[in-house]
Design a protein around this nucleic acid. Structure first.
Lengths: 219, 219
DNA sequence: AACAAAAATTTGGTATACCAAATGAGATAA
DNA sequence: TTATCTCATTTGGTATACCAAATTTTTGTT
């Protein structure tokens, strides 16, 4: 783990800080300050910031400090729309092209998640959740699709995290994951896509609730 | 135009060189050499290379020179698969959400392309082709989808360029664009998606031919 | 006191210097 | 002659220094 490239390590650290809210939306990320904080130079810090910008977690502004992204409801729901298109395609292709080994491995991942539920850090749990969905994408045997999907899941991470800590939907998520896995193991494209659709609709609803109550909070 | 950020300018220059074949697939892009060539320092050159890496045009290798990407047929066809998923969604949403103004503007773009055909640099013409498809994506009013789609179109640029210069399919492409535009102006989702599907299937066939004849060349 | 101009400071952009890993050439031993 | 070891060179990774645009603070004038 320690042999990972420095900019990636920095990006990991910043990413967690953003997701935990240590770095609040709208807050500036000054190259110099954060570089000295983490005891690295500006060069890898710059690269780390670009990585996060690519993921959509920070916003680059010409000749200004990058800031932590603060996506509107429209942006989130637009992103979920795209994620849905990608995941549905992933589901269909995964049923077709996954090896039996893939399915067994992903089943094991799900079992592991069930074990960990409530026992580990919420962010770590989200990491597992993400990996579950990414593993299905990889099982399509379409590397480009998997990569694109993974970039998107990362991008949505914060929104999903926020909607999840607001209202504990872990039981429902678990059930939906089981539905997806059931369809997957039977290579039932139709049920697989239906389950994925339900899963993402629920996400959209969760996010909608969160933004609605946030608007209330302002009154 | 000249006020664009330096790394972007460098990326533009390198991108064209890659597409024209001045920088051949597999060739190394040494930071230092290319930086001195373009009379800039390594820092913005590095960033430019990262931009192209994000677009999939160059490959980063840890502690090694980046090289110009040399995608296999599998990679290209995988990418077309994703592009198809995105464009079909774009087509459907564009029919639903485009303003009349959007449609008129895109129609004008197509007319302009018809005028330019054969009169301008092939790469410039491809730029127009790309902008046509990107404009449709923007007409969905889903900024995230448009952005994702645009990233993908850029990524496919070289493959499309190569398949097009190998076999002149401009007449067919023109006809297909007209079909798409016709369906779009009538907001006919079904025909729009069908036309887009045909357009991309043709692309896949073109690419397949190109790779097949390349394999022959080796014998 | 209020506004304007200018100087000082902050901060991202760029250039350069240094380092360490990787590569390749040349020498030496089997 | 071949294989291997060593050392020089190449090259990406990182740190630092410098610059210019933007921001803030200060100062001077009305």
């Amino acid at each position: 783990m320690t042999d990972k490239a420095l900019p990636d390590q920095i990006a990991d650290k910043l990413r967690r800080d953003i997701l935990k809210g240590v770095l609040a939306p709208g807050q500036q990320i000054k190259e110099r300050d954060h570089a000295t904080d983490l005891d690295v130079s500006r060069t890898p810090m710059r690269e780390a910031i670009r990585i996060l910008a690519k993921e959509g977690l920070v916003l680059l502004r010409p000749s200004r400090s990058p800031i932590v992204a603060d996506p509107s409801y429209e942006e989130i729901s637009d992103a979920i729309e795209v994620l849905t298109a990608l995941e549905l395609r992933c589901g269909a292709l995964a049923c077709k092209h996954a090896t039996d080994d893939d399915i067994a491995r992903i089943q094991a991942m799900q079992d592991h998640m069930d074990d960990c539920q409530g026992k580990i850090d919420r962010i770590d749990f989200f990491e597992l959740d993400m990996q579950f969905h990414m593993a299905i994408a990889e099982a399509t045997q379409n590397a480009v699709l998997a990569e694109t999907h993974s970039a998107f899941v990362r991008r949505m991470w914060r929104a999903r995290y926020l909607s999840a800590i607001r209202k504990d939907s872990s039981a429902r998520v678990k059930r939906q994951h089981h539905d997806i896995m059931q369809a997957f193991s039977e290579r039932d494209v139709y049920r697989m896509c239906a389950s994925i659709g339900i899963h993402l609709d629920a996400l959209l609803e969760n996010v909608k609730d969160k933004y609605a109550s946030e608007t209330e909070d302002l009154q």
